[in-house]
């Protein structure tokens, strides 16, 4: 129910309590314990409506143990208003019960269907290049800072991804090959920091690849396979499965393939799906490959032809 976050800050979860008296009861049970004195307490409340007097009494109850109420989390608007009136900090929580279904309603856009987006993309790239050349010194400093901050984030991500990998690697049908890291240079600096993993095989339905950095697959990816990578995904072949590039939130990640026809493309937090159509994949007997690349432009996943 309660969790020590850092040093003397406690997060006390009372979101299961159904009424004001429940809250007081649960709270006093916690305050009876040794560890509750001299702490800063963050309270998490559920949908219970509390008025100012009730919040004040909760506060004084906490103060009686020489602890302090630092912030409140609540789903009730009344409680929120009352707490604000007293001067408490409100941590925003989302009402998870009313979360809408996140379905990739958007289809991915082909660049030739949206020339204005292409133009925007070109303009954006131009602006970025100019900015970089002008403030080279500033950029260096900020890059260093970024690296420092990034390292922490990267560690977190790595730990998360390791955990995720452990879960999956116990199961059959999962490939988790450790291929020596290798250098892969590109204009995009953020992506460049990742290591690159090479996979030389055909990925079939049900096979799952998780990778922290960039991923290069030399072979086809059949529909039903799933590819998750922290950086770019490049497929030297046909891509039919589900692909997630920049799966830790990198919006600059890209997906490219000789034949790009995936069920879903996910980049960072964006989803897009293949246009509705039949299930039958007609065998394309022609050897004409038009390499394509998908990336985010204006919060939309756009597929570009890479023929120039």
């Amino acid at each position: 129910m309660s969790k020590l976050i850092d040093g003397n800050i406690y997060l006390l979860d009372l979101s299961q309590s159904k009424s004001a008296s429940d809250i007081v009861f649960d709270l006093s049970r916690f305050l009876d314990t040794e560890e509750s004195s001299n702490k800063r307490i963050c309270l998490k409340l559920g949908k219970v409506d509390l008025n100012q007097a009730q919040i004040l009494s909760v506060k004084s109850l906490i103060n009686s143990r020489e602890s302090a109420l630092v912030s409140l989390e609540t789903l009730s608007k009344q409680t929120e208003a009352a707490a604000l009136a007293i001067g408490l900090i409100i941590n925003k929580t989302q009402d998870s019960s009313s979360e809408e279904i996140e379905v990739p309603e958007k289809e991915y856009i082909k660049a030739e269907d949206a020339p204005e987006l292409v133009q925007q993309a070109e303009e954006q790239e131009g602006v970025v290049e100019e900015a970089e050349t002008k403030t080279e010194e500033e950029a260096d400093v900020s890059n260093e800072l970024d690296v420092i901050f990034d390292d922490d984030k990267k560690m977190e991500k790595m730990i998360n991804s390791l955990e995720a990998n452990n879960v999956y690697s116990e199961k059959n049908g999962t490939i988790d090959i450790d291929i020596p890291e290798s250098e892969y240079t590109k204009e995009d600096k953020e992506i460049d920091e990742f290591s690159t993993k090479y996979i030389k095989q055909t990925l079939r339905s049900g096979q799952l690849i998780n990778c922290e950095g960039n991923l290069v697959i030399i072979g086809d990816c059949h529909s039903g396979c799933e590819i998750n990578a922290g950086g770019d995904v490049t497929v030297w072949g046909t891509l039919n499965g589900i692909v997630h590039a920049g799966c830790y939130g990198n919006t600059k990640a890209r997906v490219r393939a000789l034949k790009l026809n995936p069920i879903q493309i996910r980049i960072a937090g964006l989803f897009s799906r293949k246009p509705d159509g039949g299930n039958v994949i007609l065998v394309d007997k022609s050897n004409e490959y038009t390499p394509e690349e998908a990336r985010i432009i204006n919060n939309e996943i756009v597929v570009f032809k890479m023929n120039d």
């Binding site: 998870s96 019960s97 979360e99 279904i101 996140e102 379905v103 990739p104 529909s223 069920i263 879903q264 989803f271 799906r273 293949k274 509705d276 299930n279």
Partner: peptide, 22 residues
């Protein structure tokens, strides 16, 4: 014909990665 709309699955629900409704 819903293959391209699936984000979360039965296993995700069981393992608590998403809500049932999602």
């Amino acid at each position: 014909g819903l293959e391209n709309r699936i984000v979360y699955t039965l296993v995700d629900v069981v393992e608590g990665r998403c809500k049932l409704k999602q």
